[in-house]
């Protein structure tokens, strides 16, 4: 494993910890999209089915379990915690997730490496992850004012993807015959989804202001 990949994973993990701490400390999930969190849970469940039949490394297994557990913990807080769930912007978080799930599933049926259940589900998880942040970005756009922690959470999620891109370039030049087109194309799309957000995040940071999205 190279340094970019490790940095990417750690940034991903940190983004989740930041979100969980925000929810626990402020007892509020205002500005957080439950739809996006549920999409991530679907992504992790469909991708990590291989926990049952393949072992890559202890690191790999532990990280997968952490991602699964934290995803469901966040959903539990937003749906069931008696204080936190009242702060959820249900009326604003109205993205139609089926518009993401169905096309991703169809694409996974059409473009995959092998027509098997686990392989199609794995491919589906790759496509879905690329667009899973969209409900969150739409919610942000609607509520306009972005609190620092939510902003940092999204910034870290975007950074994690950018680090994975660098990791793939590194692997391409250091590992003979290494290529994974489905992952590369989806990952590039996923990183591009964050570009607009990055622009406003960096601008706010440079001007030392609270982040604001244009109307």
């Amino acid at each position: 494993m190279n340094i970019f990949r490790l940095a990417g994973d750690m940034t991903h993990l940190l983004s989740i910890i930041v979100l969980l701490l925000k929810i626990q400390a402020t007892k509020s999930c205002a500005g957080v999209s439950l739809k996006t969190q549920e999409l991530y849970a679907v992504v992790f469940v469909t991708r990590y089915l291989d926990l049952f039949y393949s072992f890559i490394s202890l690191y790999n297994t532990v990280m997968k379990i952490i991602f699964l557990l934290t995803a469901f913990t966040i959903i539990w807080y937003m749906r069931k915690h008696k204080v936190v769930c009242q702060t959820y912007d249900k009326e604003q978080d109205t993205f139609r997730v089926l518009f993401l799930i169905v096309p991703c599933f169809v694409l996974a049926l059409l473009v995959n490496h092998e027509m098997s259940v686990t392989e199609v589900l794995w491919t589906f998880s790759i496509y879905l992850e690329a667009v899973a942040i969209l409900p969150q970005l739409v919610l942000l756009q609607r509520t306009k004012n972005v609190d620092n922690l939510t902003g940092n959470y999204i910034f870290m999620l975007g950074s994690y993807r950018a680090l994975y891109l660098v990791n793939w370039v590194y692997r391409y030049f250091t590992e003979l015959g290494y290529r994974q087109w489905i992952v590369w194309v989806s990952g590039t799309v996923q990183t591009c989804v964050y570009l607009d957000f990055f622009y406003y995040y960096v601008q706010a940071w440079r001007n030392n202001e609270r982040m604001k999205l244009p109307g």
């Binding site: 291989d50 890559i56 490496h113 092998e114 015959g177 290529r179 992952v183």
Partner: peptide, 10 residues
């Protein structure tokens, strides 16, 4: 590994 993806990434 003949083109088949290595699923060692998260």
């Amino acid at each position: 590994n003949g083109g088949k993806e290595r699923k060692d990434e998260l």
